[in-house]
Amino acid sequence: MSLREGLFALALLFAGLRPAVALRRDAGLGAGPIGAFIALLALAALLFASGWPRLGGSAALALILLARRRQFAAWPAGTVERLGAYDPAAAALLGHLVVWMLAPADRAPALAWEAGSGVVAATYGLAALAKLREMGLGWADPRAHALLLIERSGPGVIGALRAGVAHRPALVGALARLALLVELCGLLFVWPEARPAVALALLGLHAGFALLYGYWHPEWALVLLVHALPP
């Protein structure tokens, strides 16, 4: 098992843990089914990383999608999807599996990582495209972003930091423009030579999301990292 296969297996585990934790917390699913699900997913991820990428990958993808379906069903129709249910590891894995099915056996391992990288690039390109389609460059207007930040302020150092930033419109606008630019640069992830630099910029973007918005998903960071690592 290589480092990147191991880290990608970990990303797949995180991808399944998120809906599993949500099902436990929001739908009261018992510890038994959750434990069995995590054990099966860990086994599938291990198989993926240990020389059975098609078998392990297909099983892991099926399990992650099953957990997501259960999570969607635990809320009124469309609630989870509308609020943003993103599965970068599952999406990249889908790219891997398609190539494993289509490419010649000797080239499939290398090309599968390329397909995964292409999918990762597309996720960021789509995020930037969605903003530009809705609002154009006006998306970076600081007022709405200041509101998003102040909603997330509160007691503690991080809450105070968010409030401090929210009250500085020039800084908020600059951060929003930078975030949009970095998302657009995510498209360069299709180019192998650019991946380390693009991954670094995108990891910085996620660090900003975590600090200012409270969204921290290790799955995104791992998916970026493993696809930027050399073979």
Binding site: L65, A85, A90, A91, T123, A127, K131, E134, L148
Partner: peptide
Amino acid sequence: TPFSRFGMYARL
């Protein structure tokens, strides 16, 4: 899922 338009916070 795993498809999405990744439109979170696009409409402000």
